[in-house]
Amino acid sequence: MKGLTLRNLHKTYFDLNMGSRVTAVQDVSLHIREGEFVAVVGPSGCGKSTILNMVAGFLPATKGEVLVGDRPVKGPGPDRGVVFQNFALFPWKTVIDNVGFGLKMRGIPKPERDRIAREFLALAGLTNAADRYPNELSGGMQQRVGVVRALANEPDVLLMDEPFASVDAQTRMTLQEELTRIWQERRHTVLFITHDVGEAVFLADRVIVLSKGQVLREIDIPISRPRAWDTVSEQDDFKRLSSEVLQMVRSA
């Protein structure tokens, strides 16, 4: 496990429609401590996904750098596990082969990686789905696989890009609770992107509000763990912090 550092990140790109360069991310600096859960929230178009894509190494930064521990990021790599909004499971692989993919890439033999994959599947209650194809699962189940696939590869940092945005509201709350439970057991360093203020406050140790490509404010979330929606949603702290963040996002 390692910390994650963003140092003066900039991203500009050429917009064909406007015929000019557009700034998506402007001078963002951020440090996420080892084992810390940080959520970045902001309205659509604020640059939060671009930040995640640069951290993941999918997009090059125009200026600035990203460090995992003290090693600069040069492209996508297994030190940063990514959970995608639309799951990005391999449709032609069964659930267990999806989860074992990272292990396969490291050359771990089939019986060993199946054993490890089954352990992780059990963690998310997916034992019975092991031999199904992603297409045969509900959205919520698919994203459980997505999360477990990233975890099974034992990354230093977990990057989550609006992972629960495309599942229904009920399932979303269950998935959020499961995520906090798993996180508490394994204490990953997490960068979580969302536009859902409640989700950010519920999950994170710290919430970053982003606006027009810049960090507007950082807010610590001192709500005690373990967190469950039944109890947390009743707490004054949660209500106060949520409305505070919400106001900032709306004014952003």
Partner: peptide
């Protein structure tokens, strides 16, 4: 957001 290219039909 990323570097995707608009279809020509949408450019005036």
């Amino acid at each position: 957001m990323s570097d995707h290219v608009e279809p020509i039909a949408f450019i005036a």
